[in-house]
Amino acid sequence: MSAILEVDNLRKEYRDFNLNVSFSLERGYLMGFIGPNGAGKSTTIKLIMNLLKKDSGAIKVFGLDNVKNEIEIKQRIGFVYDQNYYYDELTVEEMKGIISRFYADWDDELYRSYLKIFDLDPRKKIKELSKGMQMKFSLIMALSHHAELIIMDEPTSGLDPIVRRELLQILSEILQNENKGILLSTHITSDLDKIADYITFINQGRIVESTTRDFLLENYGVVRGKKELLMQTDKGLLIGVKENEFGFEALVKDKARAREIFGDKIIIDKPTLEDIMYYQIDGKVV
């Protein structure tokens, strides 16, 4: 079965920023799309949704070209953006009335069940909802038409940790269906620690890494040791070296190798996704 999303040599040039990315996502998995602010996450997602025009490269969703088959693809995509772009003067029910008619597979019963699960009153105006409820509303719109691919662009920014966990629970449930795929972009990497299958890390318009989260956690490590050890190392082993008064710390991509070289003289800790992002952004490689 082909990948649910394929991005191939996608390029977009701006005056002071350019994007050049390739990655793909198979059905049944959640891909966390991480990177610092301004790295190109939103740009990539907008390019997939054809809200921005690409300069070159290919984007395939469900195996179809994202521009030639734009409408067909969008029927099967659920989207959740970082802010509420819906009409806040309208009530939930009114907004749903408008949105639902564009989708051939809209399932009203499913919509109502989600309203119950989220405890959302359809008679409320969208502007009367809290930020968390607005995001849940977006999510309900994205989920109520049996979308196969769910694209979320920083859906959790501005939300409290409890709502964020709720969202992750729901995404977990959705993935019980192995035909669906989720692309979740965020700079709050702790959200992904519990749920991402794949991680694609983007920085300054380029993909730094695109692999399983397991691979990252099993091979990467945060190394700490005395500064003098910096002389002994293999070239390119220590990434994002930070020295302080009492020693240094750095990321390694191959912690077995680090252990080989330094033996007991260093401490190697399990990295969080945030560590993996943090040390690679500064870029001082030793």
Binding site: G28, Y29, S172, E173, L175, Q176, K194, I195, A196, D197, Y198, T212, R213, D214
Partner: peptide, 11 residues
């Protein structure tokens, strides 16, 4: 199901 319950990746 196991992945969901343990909150880990299905991979």
């Amino acid at each position: 199901n196991l992945a969901k319950e343990l909150q880990i990746s299905v991979i």
